[in-house]
Design a protein around this nucleic acid. Sequence first.
DNA 1: AATGAATGAGTCTTCATTCAT
DNA 2: TATGAATGAAGACTCATTCAT
Lengths: 207, 207, 207, 207
Amino acid sequence: MSPRRRDAEGTATARAGRRTELLATAAEVFASRGYAATTVREVADAAGILGGSLYYHFDSKESIVDEILSTFLDDLWARYDEVLGAGLGARETMERLVVESFRSIDRHRAAVVIYQNESRHLSEGPRFAYLRESWDRFERMWGELLDRGIKENAFRSDLDVPLVYRFLRDTVWVAASWYRPGGRLTADEVAERYLGMVLEGIRAPKG
Amino acid sequence: MSPRRRDAEGTATARAGRRTELLATAAEVFASRGYAATTVREVADAAGILGGSLYYHFDSKESIVDEILSTFLDDLWARYDEVLGAGLGARETMERLVVESFRSIDRHRAAVVIYQNESRHLSEGPRFAYLRESWDRFERMWGELLDRGIKENAFRSDLDVPLVYRFLRDTVWVAASWYRPGGRLTADEVAERYLGMVLEGIRAPKG
Amino acid sequence: MSPRRRDAEGTATARAGRRTELLATAAEVFASRGYAATTVREVADAAGILGGSLYYHFDSKESIVDEILSTFLDDLWARYDEVLGAGLGARETMERLVVESFRSIDRHRAAVVIYQNESRHLSEGPRFAYLRESWDRFERMWGELLDRGIKENAFRSDLDVPLVYRFLRDTVWVAASWYRPGGRLTADEVAERYLGMVLEGIRAPKG
Amino acid sequence: MSPRRRDAEGTATARAGRRTELLATAAEVFASRGYAATTVREVADAAGILGGSLYYHFDSKESIVDEILSTFLDDLWARYDEVLGAGLGARETMERLVVESFRSIDRHRAAVVIYQNESRHLSEGPRFAYLRESWDRFERMWGELLDRGIKENAFRSDLDVPLVYRFLRDTVWVAASWYRPGGRLTADEVAERYLGMVLEGIRAPKG
DNA sequence: AATGAATGAGTCTTCATTCAT
DNA sequence: TATGAATGAAGACTCATTCAT
């Protein structure tokens, strides 16, 4: 690699790095104060620059959340698609989807919190059509998986699928509101315990 | 009872009725658009009056959410306290708490949504100390209940109590985001299925 | 007329009156400082209210110019249409159009100045399509009138119609930049002298 | 001439050339969007550089218009002064002034548009005193010329001089708003037709 | 009880300008 | 010469709140 090339890459990387940095900062602030209640100035303060300076990097407050959420969802669906394409049985698929979900909470905690709290309101605008689409794919994915699991005798046959889908969906994501990377449990450990609870129930086995 | 008094009471009742009406309207709007993102004017529009007119009934936007949330929590804890005071076993206590929770979603859907979405942010202000208190009572209540249930051999002894507490807590309340009174299932039916899932798990029983 | 009705009308009139007042003030300020260079605050100052208060009456700065210009053009075309519908000869039609133009400068001086200075820029937005339409009608009107006048032998046959059209068009409206209602000459007097100049030329008659 | 000197001159010339280029670009943009409504960034975009880079060449946005307008006016008055110093009769003087005016529109179209649209507002600042002076010289020049023409029996004796002055003044310059160098008519042809109209009028000669 | 008009602080955003590189 | 990142003042607009009627 010539020095020239290294330089050019260095600059491009630096630029992308600054963006990523600002997005991470913004995500943190949006997650903790709420998107609507957060002022652009607060985001800028947290980034150590002035309010107006953010607009050198981003078009608008909205485009900031947009980028935060779409980055998260792109990453998430890439992992999900890998799992779904692996040709596994329903229960193993479900287990791995749950693991990937908790891992994505680990990587994108702030984004997940925003997704959880704001996507319902944001998805009304045309700019956020992808949120609705993601939502729908989610619903289809879990619905089909539960149905398949029942057929494969992996899940109980008396499940109320739409209801279970809702609980699984929400239950995974709300974890973002309390999970702290580097805390007592790793993402994989949380996933394991969560699966234990969901699959086996919490009642003591009859003796 | 003199006619005078009846009049006075009639007026007072009418006034209280109007208040309740306005609170219900406001709760609905706050729930669907988010508290911070909702303008006083939107609430007033939904109530068919002008923005300024709301201030005849309430001191401020904040005092409106305040009243919505405290009404809901007062009612909720009254029911919880009844259950807790009944001297039941851990599992039955848990079952009845879940049932009361879903019933309260049925009665206060909008308030629960607001509680779910905004209480973290709101509870920072001094006016909303009761939200933090309620949160703490919640945590203690479930923690003690789970511990007791394990001792009583009602729940599996290998539960990760803090984790299970979090899942139970969130899992119940997020139901407010999709539950519609008068829908396919009554609150009690949802509670029953939910309990089935949580207690027994979703995995098909072996052999 | 009952007192009730008088009251209602009084209120409606007062409301419309306030709007008209604010529009007149805004037009004056836009005309003297230029639309883009005028701040909403300057308009509000001139009206004796605060900047934000203007938004009780109008949606945006743009909607203010919009209303100023469309009011002026509606009035202008109503008068033009009367003249055009009167079945007069080309020269008399032209004379009366010029008179009506100067009269409209008298009634809508500020609006005409704005129209003159800003319509080119404004008409690019979709909201101001009517400016382009008015412009086109103008062009057609004068083109046809000049052609007809030449056929009727009212105007010289060697006129370069597109060129003359342009001069007539601009020449009339720029008068708004110096005409002051209540000055040395009335609108009708200016029109008369203007017509003398345009029709007969300024060169001394030979012989 | 040493190579060194040639180089230095070459560089100086190149620099001056870049300046001129940028000024032409800026003039075009100011003319089409309006000075106040044009951002420095738009000018830079049109020149293919970044916003901040303009400040290597110019002190401020204001100094750019300043240079555009003063260049134009210097050139214009140099030509006018030649005509005025030639000792011609009033009518020939007037004809040649008009010709020079249209020629200057040909050479400085964008500058003339800016002059026409913005000089009233700009001339309020101290930096643009020369605009007011030019305006005054203009007025005196035309006033004296018309008076002299009447005395010399070149123009009709019943002219309303202040009025005719205004029409001549504006009428010539507004041509900049539609004239396109290289169009159907050359500047001299437009001048000729314009003079025909102004001198002889547009009415068909009697009998 | 409610209206209509206004307030004034604050929000998002723009933009001329600066400056290290 | 030009770039990229930032500044900071100002601009349009919003909105909770007030108050005379």
